[in-house]
Write a protein that binds this DNA or RNA. Sequence first.
DNA 1: TTTTGTTTTTTGTGATCACAAAATGCAAAC
DNA 2: GTTTGCATTTTGTGATCACAAAAAACAAAA
Lengths: 236, 236
Amino acid sequence: MNTPLPLDITLTDRKDGVTITEWVYAVLRHAVMCGQILPGRSLTLRELAKVLGVSPMPIREALKKLSSEHALEVKENRRIIVPTMTAMKFNELCETRITLETHAAIRALPYINSTILERLESIDKDIDIARDKDDMESTITHNHAFHRLLYTANPHQVSLHLIESLWLQLGPFLRLSTERIKENYTIDRHQEALQAIRHKDALALQLAISSDIREGFAFIGTPEILHHFIQESAKY
Amino acid sequence: MNTPLPLDITLTDRKDGVTITEWVYAVLRHAVMCGQILPGRSLTLRELAKVLGVSPMPIREALKKLSSEHALEVKENRRIIVPTMTAMKFNELCETRITLETHAAIRALPYINSTILERLESIDKDIDIARDKDDMESTITHNHAFHRLLYTANPHQVSLHLIESLWLQLGPFLRLSTERIKENYTIDRHQEALQAIRHKDALALQLAISSDIREGFAFIGTPEILHHFIQESAKY
DNA sequence: TTTTGTTTTTTGTGATCACAAAATGCAAAC
DNA sequence: GTTTGCATTTTGTGATCACAAAAAACAAAA
């Protein structure tokens, strides 16, 4: 049998007016997004209910919601697991991210005013601070916030939830990159993106975003390293 | 108050091994996809439970799943409705469809063999037959099957469920096009797509798919007509 | 040691109920 | 006619329970 592995999940406070289901969803989503649960780990209603201190019902709804966003996977036996990964699927996810996010960025460009630009610059500073402190969880969160703010500048935008679904599917592998992210001295392309926004240069923005995404997964290095990561995660 | 409008939904048989929730989901999804429920219509657990002859529980799960795919919308008061539409949002949905589906088609192209090609040709014939019989529901279903088969030729494909989410969001407006689809003598671009596939011509395929999608909504004609449609649906 | 068959436990599904919040219906007042 | 206030009904949420299927644990046989 597999080791139980005690499920180290970041619990937040439940705000007023938030239903239990919504809170459970947010907690589990954050855990997946930040790679706190390894691929292949199976999740049961009663175990999570115990860990989060609620009845199985809200867990059920939250797990189902995450499953339909492909953050989790319902297997044939109805067991719910964090999806496993293949090198080809990983590549598809990255390429789809690039296609969808450059699309969203370009269509948001006309709506970006000075207020939004300032907030983007502010978030970019937060990312640098978090990275300097080697705070992985915070770096990921702020990085997502940067992209999210950019795309939602378009008030008619419909693609964010598609994009977030891709983030969720790649999430479990962000943890595996923790060790390598330092040695590789990864730097993002947000400065180039901001510059492109200031000049209202759609082509430059497209280039910046696609480079940002592609280089963000450069820690993978070679297909061999990715394959090693996948094998590693499959042990549990 | 609004008229109750008796909810005319196509009920199918429930196969063995399919859970009640899955069956309810399939039925409601098909209803939304084919525009059998008008935008703005609010759906309640107990009403649907009565119509489908099941307990409220599976309805609850199915509605939640459809909501997280943006096929339905959970309002602030927790009431679940078929989403309303704006002209700008409609446009965004179409453009996102084009971006995502051309991406999926191009990445599927290397995997299309003669077997798949034959099945695509077969489905295309089905579409023509259904259209000749003015069978709207069947035309829509076969058209989706054509696109779905094309994209899933790529075994590593991850974008289909994103694409289907867009189909679901546009679904409620397919019914509104029923009257106009005949007079406009709409024809699809599937022949061009098949030709491009035979020649392994990615650029031609991209053009065929994007034209197919764009012209598929040409019945909208002008923003004024779309606006009229939206106003019309808002009455209920 | 490995395999096979049987028992026990745990699992998700779905039904039912209690409850607070929201929607509705209806009457009195302007 | 229109608005305002209150009583009634209906709503989704979440807890609890029964149940069949799957998983796990264990025992007997090779």
